[in-house]
Amino acid sequence: MGEPLLRVENVVKRFGGFQALGGVSLEVQPGERFGLIGPNGSGKTTLINCISGTLRNDEGRIFFRGQDITALPAHRRTWRGIARTFQIPRPFGTMTVLENLRVTLEYAARERARAGDPAVEAMEILAGVGLDPKAGAISGLLTQIEMRKLELARAMAAKPALLISDEAMAGLSSSEVDELLEILLRLNAAGTTVIMIEHIMRAVMRFSERIAVLDAGEKIAEGPPDKVVSDRAVERAYLGE
């Protein structure tokens, strides 16, 4: 294997006395579809926060394209090509849906954005997730489901090399889940590496080439989807004993 796109090395994160991540390591290869699962409160979002720079890890290091990004602020990581969605949607609430994407194209995608009118490109991305009829709507007034789609569309507007989706599909109908899966598969086929965090097992299983399982801040399993689900430790983490 060549150099991984993302390398997480022994990352520890504490909140006061509580240790949310206890030395997690993982590698994601360029072009890979990587699934991250684990029970509620196992530290998935916390790990994403450390990778995207929303939180600073207390120990360990994070490398992107071989470079140490541990000390970089979030916006610089985005410039380098890491984009994420938020599990609880955080739209730019006073702006329209289109403006949400446009400002992201301007600030996150920068030279990766296509030349010409950013509104056109933003509109295309919106159409991809089926939000184009809502382009002019104030994003703070969208429904929860629309906001999730906006989260994904906005992360796509960053034109990332690595897109991290934190439960983008929660609450969607099964046909909508299939739709978003298609979108992410297409994005991946076009070269974007994707980390998918998801509770909907059907979606992660179908999507991922490799899955890592977190439990109580530790990585307890990693491998191809069918191997991981039959793992004893994973079964125990999910079902208890």
């Binding site: 929303t54 602020p73 739209p91 609430g93």
Partner: peptide
């Protein structure tokens, strides 16, 4: 300008702004 749109993302959600590449500080 771009600056004003960046300002607005800070007003709306500073953490999301950072993650969308806005140099908030």
């Amino acid at each position: 300008s771009r600056i004003g749109r960046g300002f607005a993302t800070i007003r709306d959600n500073e953490e999301a702004a950072e993650c969308m590449g806005v140099p908030t500080l």
